[in-house]
Amino acid sequence: MLYPDRFEYARPRNLGSALELISKVRNHLVIAGGTVGVLMLKRRALRPEIVVDVARIPELGGISLGGSGASSIGATTRISELERAAASSASPSSSLLSAAARAVGDVALRSMGTVGGNVSLGDPSNDLPPALMVLDAVAVIAGPGGVRRQPLRSLYRGPLSTAIGPDELLLRVEFREAPARSSWYYGKRTIRSLDHSVASAAALGSVVDGSPVDLRMALGGRAFAAPRALDLEDLRGTRPPAFVDEVVARAKSACSCTSDAYGTAAYKSAVVESLVEDALSTLGVRAR
């Protein structure tokens, strides 16, 4: 059994109190589900002066999917709650999010883990960031200077590194529903069940006569330093197989493939290629 160092524990009741705490004490840890934070405490990989539990702050909760306005998912929404809410809607956006949420760990992990933790940790193997990226989701972030908005596409800087400052909190993610006729894909490759993914991919768009229209794709997994959205705007009008070849090339170029416990660099590159081709094929874009 591992035990953490001593620390103070606080459970603020509102957003203002939470922001004040994390601004005053620089060496802090914010938790809601605690699926990663508690483990890091037990291993003494983190030794904060104070643990700030934001799970019961009303401003961080709530989920609203579909409708004519922007969909919104509060940071403290449990992943299992997102899975159920998204599964109750037949829209492409909700179907994509339901699949990504369902891919997170097991039932116990999804029941404890939160959307905010999955999004803000910056772990490239987390399932929700690629799905939210292709929905052009925006992170709504609160800090000493007020509330700001940042696209998820520019949120991730590297392994476990994001643009959310140490004195800021993720409030929610927002996005607009994809067109009703959009096709979607979410998939990942793991070595064993419940392992971190070697690679994951989310894709969304329309295909007309075998040619992609407004197709978006984002990638994650241990093959990448951080979740990555591919820039495909300049490929509008490009038809298969040239389109498929170029998307695969860009995905492999974005891959920071190095050999480690998850496989050799060549293996990871091959997994990325296979996953991208599978995503495009599912949407109706075939290589040949």
Rank of each mutant, 00 (worst) to 15 (best):
A265D: 12
V276T: 09
Y262D: 09
L215A: 06
G143Q: 10
V119P: 05
D245K: 13
H196I: 11
T282C: 05
R13Y: 00
D278A: 15
A99W: 01
S274T: 14
A100F: 04
D278F: 07
H196T: 03
A18M: 10
A203P: 03
D214M: 12
R78D: 02
V119F: 01
Y9I: 10
R43D: 11
S211M: 12
A90E: 15
F7H: 10
E59F: 05
S111W: 11
Y262K: 01
A100L: 08
G221R: 01
R286Y: 11
V244A: 06
A270E: 14
L219A: 06
A202T: 06
L41K: 06
A137I: 02
G143S: 09
G143M: 04
R228P: 03
G105M: 02
A18T: 08
K252S: 11
A87P: 05
R157F: 03
R176V: 12
G33R: 02
R216N: 04
A254L: 11
P179D: 07
R153E: 14
L19W: 06
A139L: 07
V30H: 07
R110E: 01
A10D: 06
D136E: 15
S269F: 00
A249P: 04
H196F: 15
V107S: 13
D278G: 12
A251D: 07
P48S: 10
R6F: 12
R43G: 09
G143L: 02
A55T: 03
A10K: 11
S93I: 07
E20Y: 08
D5R: 14
P48M: 05
A199C: 02
I57H: 08
E49W: 02
L135E: 02
I141E: 01
A201F: 08
K42H: 11
A261Q: 13
S80A: 15
Y3R: 14
A203C: 06
V38K: 00
V36F: 13
A201I: 06
R157C: 13
I50D: 06
G221E: 09
V38M: 14
V247M: 06
R110G: 04
Y156G: 04
T282H: 12
D260T: 07
S200M: 10
G284H: 03
A101F: 07
V272R: 10
M217C: 10
A218H: 07
I79K: 01
A199F: 01
M112F: 04
L41D: 09
T114K: 08
A249K: 15
A100M: 09
S23G: 15
R13W: 05
P4T: 10
R11G: 03
P159R: 13
G62Q: 09
A199N: 00
E168R: 08
G158M: 06
A18Q: 08
S120R: 01
I57A: 09
A18P: 08
I191Q: 13
D123S: 13
S154Y: 10
P130T: 12
E168W: 05
F224M: 03
T258E: 13
L204S: 02
R192I: 05
